[in-house]
Design a protein around this nucleic acid. Structure first.
Length: 460
RNA sequence: UGCCCGGUAGCUCAGUGGAAGAGCAGGUGACUGUUAAUCACUUGGUCGUAGGUUCAAUCCCUACCCGGGCAGCCA
């Protein structure tokens, strides 16, 4: 039996090849008198391989049962195609029907809406659209590692289960082995969490940042890349309850250095997608988001805009735009404000930095002006915030003051404060939403379509 | 969670207070190195669910279920 040839390699072949085997799923069949054309896709690339099956070859008797969606194994010769549409085709010498797909197979060769595809998560990866998104996702994941590894960052793993109930952002999913119908209770009638598996309340992580800081203050430059969980009842196209996040943390780094890395990372990933996923991006440009390629080339062609929060407020106030929510210094931007900045005013990605302290978490470094912190958000057209980061407060007294101001119990953060007691260093980091980056790169408008099995409120 | 829009054939959709439609998929036949092949014929429906109004409801009303968009929260 000849080794199986991936469609990807067959289509990229430099010369004919006799006696090869291809296996995959039939996308469409065209019958002629005496022979049939089978378009076979094996997931190795976007394109299909056209197989020409003479009705006299072994196995051709199964052709009437080979409908869209069936799995087949074909042996034959890879030859130049005499017709337009493809450089190579497979001249079959034998055909085997591996698995039938009858007319009830939901993915027929017509357009399907993304909403319908979401109703069949177990099958939709066989479509051009979802398959392409998942191939791009795979390449982007590797490029994230390449970016950081080339810069000497250590890939670290922070815990998914955490006991910190206030990591800074969002509602948490509880992790417990107690029986919800009859949990053990203490004398006060409340649930006795000391009797739970970890001896205290535990949750799924909403961020690896705090642990990342401890490792950055040992290994220098680190990054995490893993799942993150938010129990918020968010029903938008950009939110998922379970998503992946990239969180670099850098010792001896300030906010400017932080922004440099974030912008370089996004540009690297877009550039890599253009180079390594050309077929998929051309597909998204044609069928999902017109102008995608042009937008992506623009992203890598020039530096991102950079503007302070205070300057951004002035731009918004001077814009003459009638916003639903008024712009006021000291408050977080609304989505409409961010959209105006990145889509209307700058028309490219923009990094906004130095936000009001009142609008940001306790761990961000207080600026000398006393009213802002060294925070930054990277906004991109069509999606909004894709990166959020900051320089961390490394001064013990200021950190403690900020924690008290945010109403935090310092007892639970002794280990975090220790980082400032023993050999403290300026350090900074950020979080990049992986799925949001994929939305940017693919032009998909919904986070559910760049995630194989999306988890959102009411859907797991 | 709030506001808005939608649910009709396997899929994409049109439609009307008075006898449920088209394209694609499936079937039959024709034809052909075809490219979402083409042509002819053809199978296929509890019009989301439950109530209500009406002589009559897929259509109007109410509730619920499901899906989507936007907003808030954030990545």
């Amino acid at each position: 039996m000849p080794p199986r040839l991936k469609v990807r390699h067959a289509l990229a072949s430099a010369q004919p090849a006799a006696g090869v085997e291809v296996a995959g799923w039939v996308r469409t069949k065209r019958d002629s008198k005496g022979f049939s054309f089978l378009e076979v896709n094996d997931g190795s690339c976007l394109r299909n391989l056209q197989a020409v099956v003479d009705h006299a070859v072994p196995g051709a008797g199964d052709l009437p049962e080979i409908l869209t969606g069936a799995s087949v194994r074909i042996t034959g010769d890879l030859v130049p195609s005499p017709a337009k549409g493809q450089a190579w085709e497979l001249k079959a010498t034998s055909l085997a029907l591996v698995g039938r797909a009858d007319a009830a197979f939901p993915l027929q060769k017509k357009g399907h809406t993304p909403e319908f595809l979401r109703s069949i998560p177990h099958l939709r990866a066989r479509t051009n659209r979802i398959g392409s998104a998942l191939r791009v996702r795979s390449v982007m994941a590797m490029e994230i590692h390449r970016f950081f590894q080339d810069r000497g960052f250590a890939y670290v793993h922070t815990p998914v289960i955490t006991a910190s109930d206030c990591e800074g952002a969002g509602e948490l999913f509880r992790v417990t082995t107690l029986d919800p119908a009859s949990p053990p209770k203490g004398a006060d009638g409340k649930v006795d969490w000391a009797a739970d598996f970890f001896g205290r309340q535990a949750y799924l992580t909403v961020s690896g940042q705090l642990e990342g800081e401890t490792l950055a203050c040992a290994l220098g430059d680190v990054y995490t890349f893993g799942p993150t969980f938010r129990a918020e009842n968010s029903n938008t196209s950009r939110h998922a309850s379970e998503f992946w996040m990239i969180e670099p943390e850098m010792a001896f780094c300030d906010l400017a250095g932080d922004m440099d890395v974030a912008e370089a990372l996004v540009q690297h990933l877009v550039r890599a997608a253009l180079e390594r996923c050309a077929d998929e991006l051309a597909f998204f440009d044609a069928y999902v988001s017109k102008g995608l390629l042009e937008r992506l080339r623009g992203i890598v062609a020039q530096p991102f805009a950079r503007v302070s929060y205070t300057e951004a407020v002035e731009l918004l106030l001077a814009s003459g735009q009638a916003f639903e929510f008024p712009v006021r210094w000291g408050e977080n931007f609304q989505a409409e404000h961010e959209r105006w900045l990145t889509e209307t005013h700058f028309r490219r990605p923009v990094t906004v930095h130095d936000y009001p302290a009142s609008a940001k978490p306790f761990y961000m470094r207080r600026n000398d002006d006393g009213r802002t912190v060294a925070a930054m958000d990277l906004l991109v057209p069509g999606i909004g915030e894709i990166v959020g980061g900051s320089q961390r407060e490394e001064r013990l007294d200021l950190l403690e003051a900020a924690m008290r101001a945010h109403g935090l119990d310092l007892e639970g953060y002794g280990w975090y404060l220790d980082l400032r007691r023993f050999g403290t260093v300026p350090h900074a980091g950020f979080g990049l939403g992986f799925e949001r980056l994929l939305m940017l790169v693919t032009g998909e408008g919904n986070i559910r379509d760049v995630t194989a099995f999306p988890r959102t409120p009411g859907h797991a």
